[in-house]
Every structure is written in structure tokens, then in C-alpha cells.
Amino acid sequence: MRQLMEELTEAYLDNNFEHPYFLDLQTGEVVLDLDEMYTGEPGIDWDDEENEDRYVDIPKIDSSEAFDVMMRFAKHTESDPELKLFEALEGRKPFRRFKDTLSELSIWDEWNRFERQYAEDQIKSWLERYELDYVELAERFKSSLLA
């Protein structure tokens, strides 16, 4: 069963700004607010004034921050073969080259753990800034999955 933190980190890491994600404070659900044609679910009715307080915009990682995270990972991996990660981040198409180098070095799993941990830390900071109680929201999320 998926957990709320997984949903929040996926929304955070989806850096496509055409994918607006919101946290439903009543149900604890993460909602992708696109046209029903794309999601199969009705979008958020922003004409309903109650929805302005019900939904909170989930932050997203931007490309410069994502680049910084890749640099941190390259610094985090200290062995000589990982120097290739720094080389990949220089020049044209650093994101593509970084991912290709991860595959070449067989360190995708390590990268995914590092990136997820970073995203979780950012989400926790966001929740604290907005004084949102994660435990309470996670219980609502769990209840909405069982309903």
C-alpha cells in the first residue's frame, strides 16, 4: 500500500510544471489537477470557495535545484569511477548525460535513494513551514484508501 510520503515526493520530483499537484487537507490525498480527460477524475472546482482552503499547492523541484542535487550526489559518491558523474554534469545535456552515467556505473538504486531522501527532507520542511501535521494527514490518507 502506498504511503502519503511516497505520493508527496513523487509530486515534488515531477518537475513538469504542467502537472499541478495539491494536497487535499480533508482526505490527505495528493491530487493531480488536470482535466478529467487526462486523469479520469474530475479536476478541482476552484469556483467553490471552500476548495481554496481545502487544497494546498505541493511544491516542485525546479531544474536548478535538481542540478544541485545531482552535484551533491556526485560529491557524496567518493570513489574514482564516480568522477564520471562530474564530467557528465559539464557541458550540454547534463541531465541526460548524468542518467546515462548512472546506468553505466550501475548506481541507479543509490541515486534513487539519495534523490528520494532529499525530496522527503524538502517535503518535511514544507509541511513544517505550513504547520501541517504529517501524522494526521497520513491517517486521513490511509482512511481514504480504505474507503
Rank of each mutant, 00 (worst) to 15 (best):
H76C: 12
D53A: 13
F67W: 10
E115H: 12
M5T: 06
E128G: 10
V56S: 08
Y118F: 13
I107T: 06
P94T: 02
I107S: 00
D57H: 06
V135E: 15
T27S: 04
V56D: 07
E82H: 14
T9E: 01
Y38H: 11
H76W: 12
Y12Q: 06
F114Y: 10
Q3Y: 13
Y38P: 00
W126K: 11
D47Q: 14
L132E: 09
T101A: 08
V31A: 02
I123H: 04
L89P: 06
S63Q: 11
H76D: 14
T77C: 11
V30G: 03
Y21H: 09
K93W: 09
H76T: 09
L4N: 04
T39F: 01
D35G: 10
L145M: 14
G40I: 04
E120L: 06
Y134A: 05
D24R: 01
N15Y: 14
S143T: 12
D47Y: 13
D33H: 04
Y118P: 07
Y130R: 14
Q26T: 14
W111C: 01
E41R: 12
R129T: 15
R2Q: 14
D68M: 04
T9A: 07
S103E: 11
T27C: 03
E29Q: 12
E41M: 12
T27D: 03
D35W: 05
R113N: 08
T101C: 03
L4T: 07
V56W: 03
E10M: 03
R129P: 05
D47E: 15
W46R: 11
S106A: 07
K99I: 00
L34G: 01
A119F: 01
E36P: 07
K75N: 15
E52L: 12
S63N: 15
V30P: 00
L4K: 03
S79T: 14
